[in-house]
Design a binder for these strands. Structure first.
Length: 291
DNA sequence: ACCCAGGCGGGCG
DNA sequence: CGCCCGCATGGG
């Protein structure tokens, strides 16, 4: 199946530390990714404006089209978003450098687990821990593709994670987060229904998420942004804090609350997009020793 | 060896 | 409320 896209870069999208990067496998050149969704393995690769997509599992062509369109946020009007968030030279520079970077929309539970693991951690280790949890606790799927059999594993369910001991979760390198992982999995497989947050507004949903042990201000915002498409969420991590302080507060330290207030006032309903461009720009600038 | 990573919970003033 | 601390783990 082919999809014609506009203002979309799969490379910038999958390389910007969103959940799909933690549970999927990015292709060598970065222009594609293989990932699983609801028992289906999906392969997406971009050349120019064309996205070539295929799947192994029970997904019709229109189902695959819908999955890709939703997953990569392809319904968003990027011209409008760039207009709204392009408030100054720095963010315009980030937009120009990473044009086509989209906020992905992922499964709420998968997003939750990924970002509980992400705290006080680095991207490489997050990927490693998530992939080991999938290997250990994800259900195996087989798909007969003519002469070859495709094997892959689903993302582990809340129940599958909740069954494990803290010790066995730690054995995959989760560290002290193992306790949080188990607590959140127990909640999500019991009385806490992640689906009910879909219809709550941003503030209410955030408050509910933060009642779970291991989910604080930053992780809650990541879950709402990448798992629920609440584009006003502005996750404040060490990177974005540094970038915002440097660019908008003359390098002076600000409280997280101040940074939220600033982002809300400046970028409003698309603050999440502003955050993702500044985050990716800031991180890569550091790697390239630009800032 | 030292420092840091898409932070959080707990304790203190 | 703000501030400070400890927390597992592995890579630079």
């Amino acid at each position: 199946m082919r999809l014609n896209t506009e203002d979309f870069s799969i490379k910038h999208t999958v390389e910007s530390a969103q959940p799909i990067m933690f549970f999927g496998d990015i292709k060598k050149d970065g222009n594609g990714i293989v990932y699983t969704s609801e028992g289906t393995m999906i392969d997406a690769e971009q050349s120019g404006s064309t996205l070539r997509c295929s799947s192994y599992g029970n997904l019709t062509e229109s189902g695959l089209r819908e999955e890709i369109t939703r997953r990569f946020g392809l319904r968003e009007d990027m011209k409008k978003i760039y207009r709204e968030i392009g408030t100054d030279a720095l963010i315009v520079e980030a937009i120009n450098k990473y044009r086509g970077l989209r906020i992905t929309r992922n499964d709420p539970w998968e997003t939750t687990l990924c970002f509980v693991i992400s705290q006080f951690n680095n991207v490489k280790r997050i990927k490693g821990i998530v992939s080991r949890l999938i290997a250990a606790y994800g259900k195996e799927k087989r798909f007969d593709a003519g002469n070859v059999e495709i094997l892959f594993r689903d993302f582990p369910t809340p129940q599958a994670i909740a069954r494990q001991s803290v010790k066995s979760l730690m054995s995959h390198g989760a560290g002290y987060r193992a306790e949080y992982i188990k607590a959140v999995a127990e909640a999500c497989s019991g009385g806490f229904d992640l689906r009910k947050l879909e219809k709550k507004d941003y503030a209410d949903a955030k408050e509910e998420l933060m009642e779970l042990r291991g989910i604080g201000d930053k992780v809650a915002d990541c879950i709402l942004l990448f798992g629920y498409g609440k584009l006003e969420a502005f996750p404040v991590d060490t990177w974005i804090k540094r970038v915002v302080e440097a660019a908008y507060f003359s390098g002076k330290t600000q409280s997280v609350r101040k940074i939220h207030e600033f982002a809300d006032e400046r970028w409003g309903g698309y603050a999440g997009y502003a955050q993702q461009y500044l985050f990716h720009f800031g991180r890569n600038s550091k790697k390239e020793n630009v800032i």
